[in-house]
């Protein structure tokens, strides 16, 4: 047995983090009231936005402390989508935030840079061809990896540009509907992550299979990780993601502080 102080594996990890060699990258956006949540038709149920009410701030309400009450939907800001979120994943085992085995919250990440394409076309869709070309250069996606789609969309700090809504819905990049089954069957990914407000493209509601990323990923007990930031700081292969959602009973997801470990 080794422990974190005797030169064992964990000791090496901590040494890398504190002494150099391993960078910790924050992939999380700040939760604040103007963080947009996904827009649903007005006659449907709506996700609560992030809201904060001060309990006290070293004042008559509590002279010693500053703290807040929070409210928000499970899918607010950078968040983790559990399989139970979608109808296709509703009956799977270990499909909710409280029942997913915790070792699944640490996984390798592959990052494919689509920032130029997304800049040219907000409706850009990531295809299998593009991933295979990427694999030729960076190697095959290892099993149980996250596939993260870098678009630099998170650099859009104006909520209007970030949501990019029009009368026919949102216009934000995402995966092509044919890509998802291949990612699951041929590459066995643990999930799909991206920078936009949801893992599906803005126009995905109009696809032949609406919301294919949600439908197939969650239907196969895989996860989603939308609204990430700082993907430009990750290598194409080799980063390790730490993604534990809050342990909410039968939670369909939760805001998550997503961290990446990167060997420098």
């Amino acid at each position: 047995m080794s422990d974190a102080t005797d030169g064992g594996l964990l000791s090496q990890l901590l040494g890398g983090i504190t002494g150099g060699g391993i960078r910790v990258v924050d992939l999380t956006m700040t939760l604040q009231p103007d963080v947009p949540t996904i827009v649903m038709p007005p006659e449907f149920g709506q996700s609560w936005p992030f809201r904060m009410e001060e309990i006290s701030k070293y004042d008559h309400r509590g002279p010693f402390c500053y703290w807040n009450n929070l409210s928000c939907g499970e899918h607010t800001g950078t968040h983790f989508d559990a399989p139970i979120h979608w109808v296709s994943g509703k009956d799977l085992p270990e499909n909710a935030t409280d029942t997913i085995p915790v070792e699944k919250f640490l996984a390798h990440a592959c990052v494919i840079d689509c920032s130029a394409q997304a800049d040219a076309d907000p409706d850009f869709l990531l295809t299998q061809d593009m991933i295979e070309t990427w694999e030729d250069e960076h190697g095959k996606i290892p099993a149980r990896s996250w596939l993260l789609m870098r678009t630099d969309w998170s650099l859009k700090t104006d909520p209007v540009a970030y949501m990019n809504m029009a009368a026919d819905g949102a216009h934000t990049p995402g995966p092509h509907e044919d890509l998802i089954p291949w990612l699951i069957e041929d590459r066995d990914v643990i999930g799909f992550g991206c920078e936009a407000v949801g893992t599906d493209a803005g126009q995905a509601g109009h696809f032949n299979m609406p919301y294919p990323c949600h439908y197939h990923m969650h239907g196969n007990n895989r996860f989603g990780l939308p609204a990430l930031t700082n993907l430009d700081a990750l290598p194409p292969q080799g980063a390790v993601l730490i993604t534990p959602p809050l342990k909410i009973r039968q939670g369909s997801g939760s805001p998550t502080r997503v961290l990446a470990l990167v060997e420098s």
Partner: peptide, 10 residues
């Protein structure tokens, strides 16, 4: 002066 919320909704 006119207030407006949720600017991403037209």
């Amino acid at each position: 002066f006119v207030g407006h919320a949720e600017p991403w909704k037209a």
